[in-house]
Write a protein that binds this DNA or RNA. Structure first.
Length: 282
DNA sequence: ACCACAACCTGGCCGC
DNA sequence: TGCGGCCAGGTTGTGG
């Protein structure tokens, strides 16, 4: 599931190989993958544009194109990007192919067809509602604390709200809450300023670690060369139900929060704040 | 404004 | 072996 670290990994691997190249043509295997404009215009307006830079905002990968356009790609759950020789056969899940002028082609594969491509003049129409970038120095604990005020929903659910902070998904929300020693069901507005500071630090820590290891492959995530991430070996709670907590050995529990799975250590992340132990470290 | 939940999709897995 | 049903989760839309 591409979250911020996975998209950042893709950006870093792709950038040196596509920046400076020009789009020769585009082939849509599943036109619904294009969110905007309509598919015919998309193909027509992509042609001839030069890729000037490759950026990331939250979970969006953004190609800055000549002529003042941006191509934003959201991989959602199963999207992959692969840079292959132009003659390479198409994988059955290929939804779009962007041919470049160096005899290479960028293949967008997406088993579950949730991923989307946006070609726009004004990037803000795509990413304008996103909250702050968690790894930017300007994002401070006070900003996080402010955005939790008035939110009674579980902190886990609020962390998944991209308006609060951009880039967290199910894996890193669970990991960050463990590192911060916070139960996923805690109402967001009951966190103390000290707890929010811990959470802010934990979010940065797990995202930075995950980028260092090339992201997390649980099922389908692949880097552009087809290799998997390595962070799954370092994760503490996600997908580790009944396995020992890395800090105290208590079996990790899985529950349902806001309609999705949440993994936590019942001892290191007590729901009752009055008995909260010192936060988990590692 | 906030919150909960369905819908979008496919394929792997489980139980029968 | 085959098949129905459940589950995975990022985002949007809907209704309360």
């Amino acid at each position: 599931m591409p979250e911020l670290p996975e998209v950042e990994t893709i950006r870093r691997e792709l950038a040196p190989r596509v920046v400076g190249q020009t789009v020769v043509s585009v082939r849509l295997l599943w036109p619904q993958a294009v969110a905007t404009p309509d598919p015919e215009r998309f193909v027509q307006e992509m042609r001839g544009r030069r890729i000037e830079a490759l950026c990331r905002r939250g979970k969006f990968l953004i190609f800055q194109l000549s002529g003042g356009r941006s191509l934003a790609i959201h991989l959602r759950m199963t999207g992959q990007l692969h840079l292959l020789p132009a003659t390479e056969a198409l994988h059955p899940h290929t939804r779009a192919v962007i041919y470049l002028d160096n005899n290479r082609a960028l293949h967008f594969r997406d088993q579950r067809k949730f991923g989307r491509l946006y070609l726009v003049e004004d990037l803000e129409t795509v990413v304008g509602s996103l909250g702050p970038e968690p790894l930017e120095a300007s994002w401070q604990p006070e900003d996080l604390w402010q955005s939790l005020q008035g939110r009674r929903a579980p902190i886990k659910s609020v962390l998944l709200d991209q308006r609060v902070v951009a880039g967290l998904g199910n894996i890193y929300a669970d990991e960050a809450l463990f590192v911060a020693g916070l139960h996923p069901l805690r109402p967001a507005n009951t966190l103390t300023q000290e707890e929010v500071r811990r959470l802010h630090t934990a979010i940065r820590k797990v995202l930075t670690e995950a980028i260092t290891h090339g992201g997390t492959t649980i099922r389908t995530y692949r880097r552009p060369g087809g290799t998997t991430g390595r962070y799954q070996r370092h994760r503490r709670v996600y997908g580790r139900e009944n396995h020992p907590c890395p800090r105290c050995g208590t079996p990790i529990q899985r529950t349902r929060v806001g309609g999705r799975s949440a993994h936590f250590c019942p001892r290191c992340q007590p729901e009752n704040t009055s008995s909260a132990a010192s936060p988990a470290r590692r």
